[in-house]
Structure formats: C-alpha cells, structure tokens
Amino acid sequence: MKAPESVSLPGGAGYTLPVNWYPADSASGAVVLMAALGMGARFYLPLAKALQAAGLNVALLEQRGHGESPWRPSRSCDWGFREPLVNEIPVALDWVKSRSARLPVYLMGHSLGGHYSAMASGVYGGQIDGIILAACGSPWLGGFTGATRSKLKFLCAMIPPASSILGYYPGDKLGFGGREARTLMQDWLALAKTNRYQANGFSDDLDCGIAQYSGPVLSLRMADDAFAPPASVEAVVEKFITATVSNVVLDEQMLGDRADHFRWARSPTATVQQIVHWHVKQQSGKE
C-alpha cells in the first residue's frame, strides 16, 4: 500500500485542518472520514488502512479540538456545528476530489461525524456521491429507554451550567465526550431535545436539506450499541426522505468483536466489507 500523507487544509478563521491521506492502489472511490465526539483521528487508523487496502482513497479528518488539531476549546476558543460544516467539510471535499479525479466521493462519519455527514448532504449534496453513517444515532431522548435515557437526561441538565461556568464542556470529567466547545454542545443539546439539527450562526433548515438529498445512504448499526440503539439510529435515517437508504446491522459474530459503539472501528474487517459491497452496488447501478 502507498504510504499515508499528512496534509493541512485551511479551516476558516485562522484554523488549520489536519488531514491524514491514505491513497489506494488503483482506487475505485474515495471516503472522507470524520470522528465521533471526543475522538481523535488516530483512533480510526485501523479503519482507514482497511478501507485503503480495499481500494478506497481515505481522507481522515482530525476533529476540531482533538488529536493533532491546533485548537483546544476554552472560553476564548469556541465553535459549534457550523464551523466544520461551513469551513472544513467543503474544503476537504474539494481537496479529495482533486486527488480522486472522476471517482465517487463518499462522506462517512462515526456518531457525531455521521451527524456532520447528514447535515452536509443537505448543503453539498451535489458534491457527494453517497453518505455512510457508522454507529450514528440521534441523542434525541425519545430514542432511548431505561438507564441510558436517565443518563442522557442528567447530561442534558449538566451541559448548560458546566459550559457557562468553565467556558467549555468538561466531557472528560462528566464521562461523555471529551473537552468540547460550548457552542458545539449547545447544538448537540438542541438535537437531544428536538431531534432537529441546528448550527448556531447557520440559518438554513438543515433537516429540510437532508430531506431533499437524493443520493445513496448506508447506515451501519452495531447490534449492542447502547449509544445508538435502533430507535436512535432510525431517528437519523428517517430524515433522508428522498434518498435510497441501505440499513445494515453488524453483530458480534460478524465483527469478531463486541458490537458496541467503538470496537467496530478497531476491528473493521466486516464493516469495510459492507462498505465495499455497497460501493460496488452503487457503481454497478450506474453502468
């Protein structure tokens, strides 16, 4: 396989977006890959390498505020859903397209990265050949029951005061996410309460945009994922009213590992097989 490259792209307002680029031999497509809340890009190296080995170029984006990102959230350093959506994703898409001439380019995200992918489909749909949602469920309280719902309600109650006092959200202390920007968590909280996307400072109706996206969508749900149970995943998928959605459930036997919110990315063989199968199906349908 070709050696990965480290690239820096302009992310708006003085921010520099770190990207790990994994070019495939004889690539048949490309994937722009985004991380879950609180996760740095390094966690997804096994997944990126497996996708590369399967013949897909991969641009692994660093999440703002984590890993190799040059910024960390504080009272004076803040952002929300808007900044990745407006400043990072379109730049990454353009760059990947310049390195993947005439190849289909898919936007893929894990959890929060999946939400970014969904929102982007309604804004940049013409530039995206497909959306891949991995372990991506809405934090909407209506999608949960029992102990997990109670934990989410507590978390929702803690986000505003903690963020106000500290100037950022202390997820590393509260046990959900990492140290996150306060506006990002305000946007996340709105989703948890209403199951509608909002991005502070972005006026377009994001859910309306998603409803108009007509490309293919692959939703990969993990069978034992407490953070993205069936109703939570459906709350995201049902937003794609005109898209062609393929739903796949991966269990422990298929993965060879726990089918939870995170382990699938460390044992990515079965996940990559599903992505490649879906990718081939999309391309054969165009011939």
Rank of each mutant, 00 (worst) to 15 (best):
S163D: 14
S164Q: 07
S164C: 12
S164G: 14
I165C: 07
I165E: 10
I165G: 06
L166G: 09
G167F: 11
G167R: 10
Y168H: 10
Y168M: 05
Y168P: 00
Y169P: 00
Y169S: 02
P170Y: 03
P170L: 08
P170F: 09
P170T: 03
G171R: 01
G171P: 06
G171K: 08
D172N: 01
K173M: 03
K173T: 05
K173R: 11
K173Q: 09
K173H: 07
L174P: 04
L174I: 04
G175Y: 02
G175W: 03
G175D: 02
G175C: 00
G175A: 01
F176N: 05
F176A: 01
F176W: 00
F176E: 00
F176K: 01
F176Q: 01
F176M: 00
G177E: 04
G177R: 01
G178Y: 15
G178Q: 14
R179H: 04
R179D: 08
R179A: 08
E180I: 05
E180A: 10
E180K: 02
A181Q: 12
A181P: 11
R182I: 05
R182C: 08
T183E: 08
T183W: 09
T183P: 03
T183H: 10
L184M: 08
L184V: 06
L184G: 02
Q186T: 10
Q186K: 08
Q186N: 09
D187V: 11
D187N: 02
D187P: 04
D187R: 05
D187W: 01
D187K: 06
W188T: 04
L189C: 07
L189V: 06
L189A: 07
L189G: 06
A190T: 12
A190L: 10
A190D: 09
L191G: 04
K193T: 09
K193E: 11
K193I: 05
T194W: 06
T194K: 12
T194L: 12
N195G: 03
N195I: 09
N195T: 04
N195E: 07
R196M: 02
A199H: 07
A199Q: 09
A199F: 07
N200L: 07
N200Q: 15
G201I: 13
G201R: 15
G201T: 13
F202E: 05
F202C: 05
F202N: 04
S203G: 12
S203Q: 14
S203H: 15
S203A: 11
D204F: 13
D204V: 14
D204R: 15
D205R: 08
L206K: 08
L206Q: 12
D207L: 13
C208D: 12
C208M: 09
C208I: 07
C208W: 05
C208G: 13
G209H: 03
G209L: 07
G209W: 05
I210R: 04
I210E: 10
I210L: 08
I210Y: 11
I210Q: 09
I210W: 01
A211R: 15
A211T: 15
A211C: 14
A211Y: 04
